[in-house]
Structure formats: C-alpha cells, structure tokens
C-alpha cells in the first residue's frame, strides 16, 4: 500500500479568484495504477491562449523590427532619456554602434509596408485574446489587485535572493507576475491606441488629441515598444529560471507536478492554517 492519504486537501483560494474552488483530488484504486505510471498535471493554459501567445510572438517581433526601420528613417532628432526640465540628457536611443550593426537604416519603405499590414494581424490577435480572457474568466489571473501592487517589491526581492520569504501566492501567478502580465496587456492596448493615433491623426483625431497630439502619441508609441522589450527580457529570464515543466505548459497546456507538491503543507505560502499548525507543533 502506498503511503498516501485517500485524498488531498487544498487551501481555500482567495475569494476574488472566483467561485470556491476548494476540492479534493480523488485517489484512483491503487491496484489499477502503479505509482510509476501516474502523471499529475495542472492545467495552466487554455488551447486558445497558447495559440494566441505563440502567434503574438512573431507578430510582435515583426512589428518591432519594422517599427525600428521607421524610427531609423530620421535620426536627426532621436528619442533620448533624460530630464528635459533640468536639461539633463542621459543617452539617445539608440547608440551609433547599435544602429550600424543592425543595418536598419534607409529601409523605411519596407518598414512601413510590413508595419501597416502586420499591425492589423497584431491588433486582431490582441482583441481575440482580450475577448478570450474575458469569456474564460482568466482575466482574474492576470489583472493585478491593489495588494499585488504592494507586494510586488517583496516578490522581486525574493526572486533576487534579497529576501527569504515570498508573500503567499494567490492564484496561478504571484503578485509580480500579475503586475507584469497585467502591465504588458496595458502596453498592448497602449501601443495599438497610440499606433492608430499616429496612423490616422485626421480620421481618428480624437485619439491623437487624447494622447496629447501627434508628437506626444509618437513618443507614447515608442515608449510602449521599449516597455515590450523590457518585458521580453525579464520574461525570458524568468521562464529560464522556472524550468522546463513551466515552459512546456505553454506548449501542452499542462504543467507536470506531483501529488506531494500539491499538498497544502508542501506549499511555502504561509496560510493562516499553516501558521497555526506550526505554532501547534
């Protein structure tokens, strides 16, 4: 007989994650299932979200690449980083060696041609994802809460090994992930709205005006791109850190785990119950 309880109990998920999802994992009869023939999986990503995630990747790459070709068409007055009010200029985007090595200059026509066709595909995929998030209820997993905003610093400090404990994880993602995923959704909306504002500043003049005019909308559009690149860097780093099972769940939808890992006491997140138990011991 395996040394396993008849069922596994789970912590009560937070109310805001929706209905009470407390449940038990029934144990199949032991004789029907040799332990080494069992795979325990957590379903993480719907088929739709996996498709849209992987379709988005090349589309966003094409958009950024063609967008940079447009940006490079006029480098007499490049965007830079600094504080204009005090006349402090830190650096220009991008350094000359970067521009030269990528060889993107003088390809404006190609850049525009790709940008203004693929922009629609990027937009359609983004809208489809938004509708999917809404209808599946998964928006609850990626929209940060005020608590998340307070805890994001602690989660990042924990990831950087500057802090021993992480705040309890509520839901599929931790606070920092929800801030990042919610943030990149916001970036997606911003980049499309600001893109339309500079694409059609007469027909959609209300958008352009809402963003403070053409030049300002263009800056917002460029800044969103930088935001995407920063997200991408952190995203790749964290996916590598999280390991193969996590990465593979974006392909199969399921992340492989173990019964032990699913037990509440195996979860480092200190719930009230866990703390009480600890005191009792």
């Amino acid at each position: 007989m395996r040394n396993e309880p008849d069922s596994i109990e789970y912590l009560t998920p937070p109310v805001w994650l929706g209905t009470d999802m407390t449940a038990t994992l029934p144990d199949a009869p032991a004789e029907a299932r040799p332990p080494d023939d069992e795979v325990v999986l957590v379903r993480k990503h719907t088929r739709a979200s996996r498709w849209m995630h992987w379709i988005n990747f090349p589309l966003l790459t094409i958009m950024i690449w063609s967008g940079l070709r447009i940006y490079w068409a006029d480098l007499r007055d490049p965007y830079g980083v600094g504080i204009g009010l005090i006349g402090w200029h830190w650096f220009d985007l991008f350094p000359d060696w970067f521009n030269e090595n990528l060889g993107l200059e003088r390809r404006l026509a190609r850049g525009m041609a790709f940008h203004f066709t693929f922009g629609w595909l990027f937009t359609i995929n983004g809208i489809a994802y938004g509708v999917h998030l809404w209808r599946s209820g998964d928006w609850r997993q990626v929209i940060p809460t005020p608590t998340d905003l307070r805890q994001v610093g602690a989660v990042v400090a924990h990831d950087l090994h500057l802090r021993k404990t992480a705040p309890p994880q509520l839901g599929r993602y931790n606070a920092a992930q929800r801030v990042a995923y919610g943030g990149v959704l916001f970036l997606g909306v911003t980049v499309i709205v600001s893109g339309l504002a500079i694409f059609a500043p007469t027909q959609l003049s209300f958008l352009t005006a809402a963003l403070g005019g053409y030049e300002s909308a263009r800056t917002v559009h460029f800044a969103s791109t930088i935001g995407f690149l920063l997200f991408f860097g952190v995203h790749i780093l964290q996916v590598v850190r999280s390991g193969f099972a996590n990465f593979w769940s974006m392909v199969t939808g399921y992340e492989r785990t173990t019964r032990d890992a699913l037990r509440p006491e195996a979860n480092a997140a200190p719930s009230v119950d866990a703390e009480t138990e600890e005191v009792a011991r």
């Binding site: 998920p13 929706g18 994992l25 080494d36 795979v39 957590v42 994880q169 839901g171």
Partner: peptide, 15 residues
C-alpha cells in the same frame, strides 16, 4: 475536476 491550491484544475493521467 478538483483544483490545485492555486485554483487550476488537476488532471491525473497514465504516463
């Protein structure tokens, strides 16, 4: 299906 402590459904399958 039951859910994991993080709210996602758990599935047990043969290897």
């Amino acid at each position: 299906l039951p859910t994991s402590h993080l709210g996602d459904p758990v599935v047990v399958r043969s290897a």
